Simulated scan of single mutants.
Amino acid sequence: MTEAIDRERSLHDPSVRLSGALAEALFDPEFIEVGASGRRWTRAEMIAALPTLHGGTENSTPITAERFEGTVLAPGVVHLTYETRIEDRHARRSSIWRRDAAGRFRLYYHQATPVPNGPDRP
């Protein structure tokens, strides 16, 4: 579980977001994301876009990730949930990591759900 959390956090690191090779090593070949905007991303689209998204440069607004929780769904498959803040945007996130043939966790699925501003927001 700790390895999956560490790898999830590394995806928020500008050095990883700027390096196609480092990013490729983290994404499963069958990766799919449903972003906070509702857009569906493929592995190739996400790797290409990472340098342009928040957290993609040393000078961009950092991504704050907190409240990580994880559950083992099956041997070699971990489901993580956590929350992020980027400037004034807050999202709840869900990721599924699975081990590849070499034993490394790779991100298989990710979904972000925006949390609206308001009195009910934690």
Rank of each mutant, 00 (worst) to 15 (best):
R93L: 01
R106I: 15
A4C: 01
R106Y: 12
S95W: 05
H110E: 15
T113I: 08
E66A: 07
R39D: 07
G70P: 00
L26H: 03
V77T: 15
P75I: 01
P29I: 10
G118Y: 07
E45S: 04
H110Q: 15
G56Q: 02
G70A: 09
P51C: 14
R89E: 15
E30A: 12
G56H: 11
D13P: 01
A91W: 09
S94L: 05
L26W: 03
P119Q: 13
S19M: 03
R89G: 04
T42N: 04
F31A: 03
E69V: 04
G56T: 11
L73H: 13
D120C: 14
R40M: 01
L11G: 03
L18G: 01
I96Y: 03
S95R: 07
T42S: 09
M1R: 08
G20L: 08
D6P: 00
G56F: 10
H79Q: 03
T71E: 10
A44H: 12
N59Q: 13
H79N: 06
R85H: 10
E83Q: 15
T84M: 12
T57R: 13
S10M: 10
L53R: 07
W97P: 02
A101H: 09
I86N: 06
A36F: 08
F27A: 08
Y82R: 09
G103D: 12
W41Y: 09
V72S: 12
G20R: 12
L80M: 13
R98F: 05
A4L: 06
A112Y: 10
S94R: 11
W97R: 01
G70S: 14
A21W: 07
M1N: 09
R67W: 12
A49K: 03
G118F: 04
R17K: 13
R40P: 00
A102N: 14
P114A: 06
D88I: 10
M46I: 14
T64E: 15
I5F: 07
R106H: 08
H54V: 04
P62N: 08
P114R: 02
G20P: 11
A44Y: 03
L18E: 10
S19E: 06
L26S: 02
Y109M: 00
E58T: 13
D88C: 02
T2L: 07
R40A: 11
S19W: 14
P116H: 06
A25T: 03
A49F: 09
G20D: 11
S95M: 14
E8A: 14
E30Y: 10
D28E: 07
V72Y: 13
F27G: 05
L26C: 02
G118H: 13
H110G: 02
G70E: 12
L18K: 14
